[in-house]
Amino acid sequence: MVYFVNDIITGALIGLLYALVAMGFVVIYRASKVFNFAQGELVIIGGFIVWFTTLQAGLSLWLSIPLSLLLAGFVGYLIERIFLTKLIGESVFSMVMVTVGLLILLRGFVLLLFGPAVRPFPVIFPLKPLFLGDMLIPLNLLIGGIITIVAAAGLSWFFNRTRPGLRMTAVAEDHVVASSMGISVKSSIAFAWVLGAILSTVGAMIFLSGKSLTFLASDIGFAALPVALFAGLESIGGLILAGVIIGIVQSLTTNYLDPVIGGSLGSVVPYIIMLAILLIRPTGLFGWRTIERV
């Protein structure tokens, strides 16, 4: 029973990490209606920035972490200005295809700049687990989970309660209406990319802390995809629930079902949940449903 509860807690915490990365998807989607397929690549770009500032430049964590977040935000801004700003007003399909191109480009860029070598990632969160009775909880994931919940609460408040956030929500709903009210659509989308890149870097810090860094770490982007679609692409709060559900189901499948069937159903089960929910509720659990007056 203790192991079962332990697996549930660990699964929930991994799910919260997925939710953090998925938050980047959602923030960018809300502003531009673009599903950013290069979200995983933003995670490794953020990871390499942290690695560079901490281990290469030798800065202390107190200095390297804020500097990395700043640099990651700047990279997000550059990506939006160079590749996407000219496409505002064009079809969403064109913009989505640009993000697919961006995925290949950023991956190639990382390989070109840093090579395929496996590098150590700095220890940002404590590696030793937390013991609760007989239960063993990874401390880095626990801190990551708390960060995710705080980030989700903060972003929900920002988008629903503050004027800059409501401006971005207006852009998410209708670019033309937003601009007719004096809201700069370009600035809102650029800010969303800055935010998306920062969230990805925080995700990289939690995911990679004390582990190794390669360009393959970008796969976490695809692992977070089911969480974003399950929650609904406009819902930040919903990501927490979706992340926890997917994380728990994945953990239980991996620990209890996979040994029986001798397969790796655990890695597939998030996508099965995603497809099932999309069939029943295409906008996800908490996504904006189309409101049409008839």
């Binding site: 629903n160 401006r167 929500t169 207006a170 709903e173 209708d174 009210m181 809201i183 406009e234 409101i291």
Partner: peptide, 12 residues
Amino acid sequence: LRHLTSEQNLIV
């Protein structure tokens, strides 16, 4: 702005 409340529309 269909998914916002009436007051949020006004604030925007």
